[in-house]
Design a protein around this nucleic acid. Sequence first.
DNA 1: CGTACGGTGTTACTAGCGGTAACCGAAGTA
DNA 2: TACTTCGGTTACCGCTAGTAACACCGTACG
Lengths: 214, 214
Amino acid sequence: MDTTQRTDQQRSADRRRRELLEAADRVVLRDGPQASMNAIAAEAGITKPILYRHFGDKGGLYAALATRHTDALLDSLRAALDAPADRRERVESTLDTYLAAIEARPQVYRFLMHPSEGGQGGDHGFDVGKHSAPLLRRMGEELAQVIEERVDLGPGSQQLARVWGHGIVGMMHAAGDWWLGERPCSQAELVRSLADLLWGRLAAAGDRVGGPGF
Amino acid sequence: MDTTQRTDQQRSADRRRRELLEAADRVVLRDGPQASMNAIAAEAGITKPILYRHFGDKGGLYAALATRHTDALLDSLRAALDAPADRRERVESTLDTYLAAIEARPQVYRFLMHPSEGGQGGDHGFDVGKHSAPLLRRMGEELAQVIEERVDLGPGSQQLARVWGHGIVGMMHAAGDWWLGERPCSQAELVRSLADLLWGRLAAAGDRVGGPGF
DNA sequence: CGTACGGTGTTACTAGCGGTAACCGAAGTA
DNA sequence: TACTTCGGTTACCGCTAGTAACACCGTACG
């Protein structure tokens, strides 16, 4: 009977948890990363202690929220990354998927990338702020794995793949962040430029000799 | 007489300002980005309102502090970037300089990269949190300028250079961040791997055909 | 029928943050 | 001596994250 009772309770708890997460989602979508626990509780129609009973602390809630979106984004990226196409096409498709995602919901994206942990809540320290941007790390690791699986890099391939995974993800992230703020070109142009960079066009280009007015 | 008096005052104010900045530096170096205004004031041997008289708000102080280190780092990078050597050498030297800098003072580096602005001080909004990581942006723009000056990219070179500038800086940043946390390899190896990536080794590598157990 | 109990929820609080108003005392000047 | 001005402090505001203590409500058990 203990099990059945616990099942009931857990079901109810899970439903509540999902409701709370959706409320938190709405608030984050509206207020950005600085959404307060009070605001989230109000949006959910309850008060703070309930949030704390469900998620422990703000880091817990943020982690749960981040995991959701992170998983969704990673699924999309995996699909683009594993498609049966040639490498350049896959790379461009992945970049495109990422950019489309961050463009579709910038607030969520900013929340995932810059959780803005102050950790000023007294002496308890902050657990989640330690890993500054879990999404970036996870994307880096996954990309590394795909590279190592599908590209022949010779000796030391694992190390190399990991460096490249994190490097490429960082490139994508920074360029996307900048692009999202300034919109200096179309999405397709950005994708092509980045792919060109990865394809060694920087190394292949010649030195510029005749500067302006020289 | 107004001018002379103001000079005296301004000299004194500048000295104070430098003292305060150095105190703030010490605290940030010790406590990381979540250093509080109280702590900084205490370290400087004064009280909060003086800090606010000098820097306006926390964003102002952080901006002043960041500008200092940012300028120093950018100077080093410019030196490496403008050296009279071939491109690959310059790229490796620049990466090396950056990694050495973030390794030397990780706390300062984390402060510069993740200012963690909550902007929760009432209704006044937050000015500095708007641009999340000014250092990255500045590095991206500077690199873009150097690329555009020295590399012949054909038509659309300015756009391309800017995308590459921000992309490369992001690559460097993400890889450095990951490397600083996990230390999976030596600094020289990291530099070489990243340069290899920029030199198109990803595109040049062949597909892996015989996976493990396949 | 009454009673003790676990779960759900609230109010009211602590401690610390960024930021500010109002006061205080020591200089210089008429 | 009286008045202003500047460096500095105390004491406060409104906000945050997080918590302790209490209240309600259905249910099992004597």
